[in-house]
């Protein structure tokens, strides 16, 4: 009996460490470091660009519009030096949504029946809408992932703070939200380490994180999450003290070490964006 106990313990401990390492290796956001023009662009350009691209996708109605959007997307991916496989990986997450949208549109749009089986009828109109929707979704996800792959989370929050600044006047706490986002990001590795420590401590006391039964696993997470939350609150209190001790008093009168400044290439990027938008609209009118 002793023997079996021991082997089980041995089996358990390396697995837990593996999990800890895995947790620590998760990269923040999905930033892909590379040396490209897109990486160097001001985050504000990338945020506005992505926003405009999404809008443009809803403007296009025909094949020519999609061709322009595809050309733009492809050239951006090429310039960004991010491997296409990274972009495709982003699509995996929405695979189910894609299938669902496609099926829904094909089978539930009334129109000319092209194929039917029992009570289900696929229609020509449905097929057309489905293809359009799927392409639109794929472009949308790939377009936004160019932004997240080429911008560090910190630049992203900085950029968002600047872009959304006008919302201050209608009472949106833009600076505060951006500050919270960047603090949350910098605390992720610390909390992951803490989670790892607590899980090891609990499995040393016999908690079973590997059980095949979901109910057992869920129950064993409770004594992990409670101390994690308690410690997160304590850390938050400490951090608030440390920030106040360093004269933090909100965004008012705050200067930046690295203020966002437009340079030539940013203006050029805006110009290219405008040309792209014009082309999309033109394609809609001409054809």
């Amino acid at each position: 009996m002793f023997g079996t106990d021991r082997t089980e313990e041995q089996k358990l401990s390396p697995k837990v460490t593996d999990e800890g390492n895995m947790l620590r290796d998760i990269t923040l956001g999905q930033y892909y470091p590379a040396d490209s023009v897109i990486h160097k662009l001001d985050p504000r350009v990338k945020i506005t660009g992505t926003f405009l691209y999404i809008i443009s996708l809803f403007l296009v109605r025909d094949i020519w519009g999609y061709a322009v959007a595809l050309a733009f997307l492809a050239s951006m991916i090429f310039i960004s030096k991010v491997p296409v496989s990274y972009m495709v990986r982003g699509l995996k997450g929405i695979l189910f949504i894609l299938l669902f949208t496609a099926a829904f549109n094909i089978f539930f749009t009334p129109g000319e029946v092209i194929w039917s089986f029992w009570k289900i009828h696929a229609t020509r109109e449905g097929l057309r809408i489905a293809i359009r929707m799927v392409i639109r979704l794929i472009f949308l996800v790939m377009g936004t992932s160019i932004m997240t792959l080429t911008t560090t989370p910190n630049q992203l929050t900085d950029g968002l703070e600047k872009v959304l600044r006008p919302l201050r006047h209608i009472g949106v706490p833009v600076h505060e939200v951006a500050m919270m986002m960047s603090i949350a990001l910098s605390f992720i590795p610390i909390l992951i380490e803490e989670l790892d420590k607590i899980m090891k401590a609990q499995s040393a006391r016999g908690a079973d994180f590997e059980s095949k039964k979901l109910s057992v696993r869920m129950k064993s997470m409770v004594p992990v999450l409670v101390p994690l939350f308690v410690s997160a609150f304590r850390r938050a209190g400490d951090l608030a003290n440390a920030m106040e001790a360093r004269c933090y008093h909100g965004g008012e009168g705050r200067t930046r070490m690295k203020p966002l400044r437009y340079v030539k290439r940013d203006l050029l990027a805006y110009l290219i964006l405008l040309i792209y938008l014009a082309l999309v609209i033109l394609a809609g009118i001409l054809f």
Binding site: M243, R246, C247, Y248, H249, G253, R254, T255, R256, M257, K258, P259
Partner: peptide, 10 residues
């Protein structure tokens, strides 16, 4: 962070 809060020029 500290100097930024104090409004020191970049």
């Amino acid at each position: 962070f500290g100097p930024e809060n104090m409004g020191v020029p970049s």
